[in-house]
Each structure stands twice: as C-alpha cells, then as structure tokens.
C-alpha cells in the first residue's frame, strides 16, 4: 500500500514539475496582488504594514484556489482516474495522495516563498517566522479544500467560478485563524491558540476532504 502511494505521489510531483504552470502561475498571481494593492490603497507604509499579514494570506488563498481545477481535470479527462478507482488502493487514499502531491508542489512552496515577499508591503520582520509557521500549517488545509472544490466540479466545462463560490465559505475559518495568529504576534496576546486551532482545522479537512472528494469523483466517473 505504501509502495503504490509513494509511486502515485512521485508521479504527481514529476508531472507537476515537467508540465510547470501551476506553481509559476500561482506565484505570478501573488506578485500581481503585491503590485496592485499599494497602487489601489495608496503607498502609505503604516497602512500597508497593518494590511500586510492579511493580504499575504488572502493572496496565498486565492492563488491556491486558482489551481483547484487542475488537480483532477487532466486525470479525469485522459481516464487515469478511472484506472485509479480500480486499483487495490482505497480510492480515498488515492485522492488523499493526490492532495498531498498538490500541497508539495503548489501550496507548500507558495507558503514558503510568500512571507518574505510581504516585506514589499512593509511587513514587520519580527512577524515573519509566525507567518511562515501559520502558512505552513494552513497551506495543507488550503490544498485539501481546493482539491474538494476541484473534485466536485471535475466534469464541468466551466467549473472555475463555481469552485470559488463553493470553497470560499470553507476558506473563511482558515483565513481567520491564519491571519489572527500573525496579528496576535503584533499585540500582547500569544499566537499559540490561533495556531493550534488552525492545525485543528487542517486535521478536520484532512478527514473530510478526501472522503467527500472521493464520493464526488466516483459520482462523476460512473
């Protein structure tokens, strides 16, 4: 079982690397947000410093959401997903492995690259470690939930808009606790409770997202 999980994960990572696009496009999106925000709200450094953690989280979240429909689309269209349902591996585990592949190739690199970019928004350097930590924990939840969105709309030709409508409510808690961990750091409170709740949300998604996505994919494959 581990063997086939590892093989699947390796396949997804390699595919993502050789095709490109996913991470690059998402990174370009974050950069676009970084450029457009100071232009739209004005170059006031004090204001930008207040906004920076929230904006970094928001851009990470939207960038991951952008890649949601890529997660299953190709495998669905070329029939690989059909084969995977017939594999000895439980289909839920297949789905979870694909989510992990997405996390490793898109969300995690973004979560590692994004915080330093926040310095362009006058992000406080002292809050960098906590932003890294919260994004590291939250990015897995972002991948899982985006994958759920991708699974639910996999057979639709224009699922993109629907994904954002469906997944936005699920992203609300992740965003709240991700940002609050970072902003707590600036205030007197400890960021630990927020971080722990963020981890809890990630763990809940780790259970719910593969189950729900596998059910949705099975419905589309029938």
């Amino acid at each position: 079982m581990w063997q086939s999980c590892k093989a699947l994960l390796w396949r997804d990572v390699q595919l993502a690397q050789r095709q490109g696009g996913g991470l690059g496009a998402a990174l370009a999106f974050i950069l676009a947000v970084l450029v457009l925000v100071p232009i739209s709200v004005g170059p006031d450094l004090a204001l930008l410093q207040r906004l920076a953690p929230g904006l970094m989280w928001l851009s990470l979240l939207l960038a991951v959401l952008l890649t949601a429909d890529r997660m299953f689309q190709q495998d669905f269209e070329d029939g690989s997903l059909d084969l995977m349902t017939m594999a000895a591996l439980p289909f839920e585990l297949v789905v979870l492995t694909k989510f992990l592949g997405h996390w490793l190739t898109v969300s995690l690199p973004l979560a590692l690259i994004a915080p330093p970019l926040g310095l362009m928004l006058n992000l406080d350097v002292a809050s960098l470690p906590i932003l890294w930590l919260s994004m590291f924990a939250g990015s897995l939840a972002l991948s899982l939930l985006a994958g759920l969105g991708g699974a639910v709309t996999v057979g639709l030709r224009r699922g993109g808009l629907l994904v954002s409508l469906l997944i936005m409510p699920l992203y609300v808690p992740v965003l709240i606790f991700g940002v609050s961990a970072t902003t707590m750091m600036m205030g007197p409170q400890s960021p630990v409770p927020s971080l722990l709740i963020l981890v809890a949300i990630t763990l809940v998604s780790l259970v719910v997202a593969p189950l729900a996505s596998a059910a949705a994919l099975r419905a589309y494959l029938q």
Partner: peptide, 9 residues
C-alpha cells in the same frame, strides 16, 4: 449526488 456532498460538507 454532488449536491448531497455539498450540503453535508
């Protein structure tokens, strides 16, 4: 089928 999943999630 899809709507059921959405409602329950």
């Amino acid at each position: 089928k899809i709507a059921r999943i959405i409602a329950l999630v």
